[in-house]
């Protein structure tokens, strides 16, 4: 037990990195994903096709590859080539990647709303933007909570990929200690930490679902 307390500080530090990547990615990729979804269903067909291609690219290649590309290869790309430090590079990759998944969830949600809702809003004089903001999206949120919850929990665990940029997230910190001390205990502690994080998320999403359960459709 004492050993566990000894290894807690580096593991907690790793958890901090993990949480930082998780929270920043979540806060940025959800609105970006929503914007992508709205572009994808817009009446400007070219925009939709463009977004389609983007989603294909982001879902069609490994997140780790995207991260390596942004960190190592992007600086050498003409015109847009910029050199990013490890943390921003990881965040950019995560946001670009997760927004693609969120976009598809939002799109499915928006398209599941009955046409009558748009018509009902339209004959009351509401614009498309007002209809989306006041009528459609609030209903979409209720419907997409389960898949969003799924994606969010996956994100917690995906953050471990940042080890390829030599960043000390929870898993890499644990692995470091395992290799140093020749014991697997740090892995078990790390697993417990991941479980606690996902438990909190699960609970939060259940609360949200309950909140939205006040009305039936």
């Amino acid at each position: 037990m004492n050993y566990v307390f000894d290894i807690l500080p580096p593991l907690l530090q790793g958890t901090g990195v993990t949480l930082k990547v998780f929270l920043i990615t979540l806060v940025l990729s959800v609105p970006f994903g929503l914007a992508l979804a709205l572009m994808r269903i817009s009446r400007f067909k070219a925009l939709g096709t463009l977004v389609n291609g983007y989603i294909w690219l982001m879902r069609g290649t490994p997140l780790m590859l995207q991260m390596l590309f942004i960190y190592f290869a992007l600086p050498f790309v003409p015109v847009i080539g910029i050199s990013l430090p490890d943390f921003p590079a990881a965040i950019v990759a995560f946001v670009l990647n997760y927004a693609a998944y969120f976009a598809e969830i939002f799109r499915a949600g928006i398209q599941s709303i009955d046409r009558g809702q748009y018509e009902g809003a339209r004959v009351l004089g509401m614009t498309y933007a007002q209809t989306m903001r006041r009528i459609v999206l609030p209903q979409v949120i209720k419907r997409i909570l389960p898949p969003i919850s799924n994606e969010t929990i996956t994100l917690v665990k995906d953050t471990s990929l940042i080890y390829v940029l030599a960043m000390n997230d929870l898993l890499r910190a644990a692995r470091g200690i395992v290799q140093r001390d020749f014991t697997t205990t740090p892995f078990i502690v790390a697993a417990a930490f991941y479980l606690i994080m996902t438990l909190v998320l699960t609970y939060g999403f259940q609360r949200l679902e309950k909140k939205y359960a006040v009305y039936d459709e």
Partner: peptide
């Protein structure tokens, strides 16, 4: 906007 409309399936906002 000078007209109001009522639908067969109501189209009330469920939320």
């Amino acid at each position: 906007g000078k007209m109001g409309m009522v639908f067969q399936h109501f189209n009330l906002f469920p939320h």
